[in-house]
Design a protein around this nucleic acid. Structure first.
Lengths: 232, 232
DNA sequence: CGGATCACTTGATTTTTGTCAATGCTGTAA
DNA sequence: TTACAGCATTGACAAAAATCAAGTGATCCG
């Protein structure tokens, strides 16, 4: 792998604190690949041979059962995915596909496990990362079980707004069909949900969403830090 | 804490491999308490002061929002809960209440974090535990997003049957109202779902469920290892 | 410039799920 | 024992969401 990529990987919390020798050892075994859009990188049930790091582009994590499909998360640069499967040396629970042209680092799982066993700093970083991931899924679970689809959309928009700086305009960063899947509804229903938020000042122009009256939307959405604040 | 409890706690994967001195140090700071049924042990959003270990009885992990409530998991002996919040020193994401008379060990979170920082074996055990928890929630998420309530119930029954040894009779280990909440439906709907499974050979006598024709139920339920096998 | 494709939207309809109200059942305590 | 509380069930209804079937609009490409 070209050393040019080392700094941005090293900058990730997961790799920031580990011993330099161990980091270099990991990097020596790793390689970078460029993928076109819509390529399936890994499939549910396959053995977890590599820990993946997204350097650019984006990756959709999804799952299928009985002819149905759902998106569970979208991975954006720079971050890793399928850490848990790598550590447990267990099969992937989700499939992954590129959404756009993406540059991805593949680190052999056995290297990760070996260094995890010897480098305490790395092990601690992994704990922190996993705890974070775990808490995120719990929040998603609560979102799904406690809210209607309209409420999920409203809170999603408020979260995006916050991420984007708090202004009234939110740009959707992926297709509506995928957003629908992430939010646990059909594309048709998402369309109707957007209309259902019009009375609360939400207007849609293609991929551009305007939150006309944030306070009004919040009165409806009732955002809650233990569901919506993904930083804690 | 009485030393009599040490062995069963030490037997947990989480504590099995750590240095004896560190284990004893953890235990010295811990204490055991007996709680009556229906006592709220912790509340969503509170700081995570203790790692909890259930020695006997059972604990319901649940969450509320906007007047609604949902059960996310049930903890049975002997196991721990709210490990992620303890490690991250972050607020609890779920509330917990005893379902029955329960004996619970409380280990101060700061002790856990301190030893996590110094004991590599303990840190590794925590990683394994967290990865396991993470994967369990992902499976629950897939169950919820990919299946109807009838399919969730059918697969739940098959999982329980397997846990109970594979015989045709499955004993529900908690109230139907709670099962309904865990499965993400109302009690009324659970009643109807049981009826909906009658054509596949499922009969209900109170808390006793008989799976008359396992193969038939499986044809309907289509259990999948990456959703239903909670051992991997 | 067509023509095709694909995402998105919209309306009509069905399915699924939740809500409300009434009833039965069971175990507990006076 | 009776009265009561709480859970489970049932039926009727309402709401939420999925499905099916067009139709619209944008983009890509020969």
């Amino acid at each position: 792998m070209p050393e040019a990529h080392y700094p941005e990987i090293r900058a990730l919390n997961l790799f920031a604190e580990m011993a330099e020798a161990n980091f270099l050892s990991l990097m020596r075994g790793a390689y970078v690949q460029n993928f076109p859009p819509q390529i399936e990188l890994i499939g549910e049930g396959e053995p977890s041979d590599f820990l993946h790091v997204v350097l650019s582009g984006s990756v959709d994590l999804f799952s299928t059962w009985n002819g149905r499909e759902t998106s569970l998360a979208t991975v954006r640069p720079v971050s890793t995915f399928i850490l848990a499967a790598t550590i447990k040396n267990a099969p992937y629970l989700m499939s992954a596909r590129t959404l756009e042209k993406s540059r991805i680092v593949l680190i052999p799982s056995q290297d990760v496990r070996a260094i995890f066993d010897t480098d305490g700093s790395f092990a601690r970083a992994i704990v922190t990362e996993l705890a974070q991931c775990y808490r995120s899924v719990i929040k998603a679970q609560k979102d799904l079980k406690l809210r209607t689809s309209l409420e999920r959309l409203a809170n999603y928009l408020l979260r995006q707004q916050k991420r984007a700086g708090g202004g009234p305009v939110v740009e959707l960063d992926f297709e509506k069909r995928r957003l629908a899947s992430v939010l646990g509804m059909t594309p048709e229903n998402l369309s109707r949900a957007f209309k259902g938020l019009q009375p609360y000042g939400v207007t849609v122009e293609g991929t551009r969403i305007v939150i006309g009256d944030q306070a009004d939307l919040e009165r409806f959405a009732r955002p809650n830090p233990w569901i919506d604040d993904h930083s804690t």
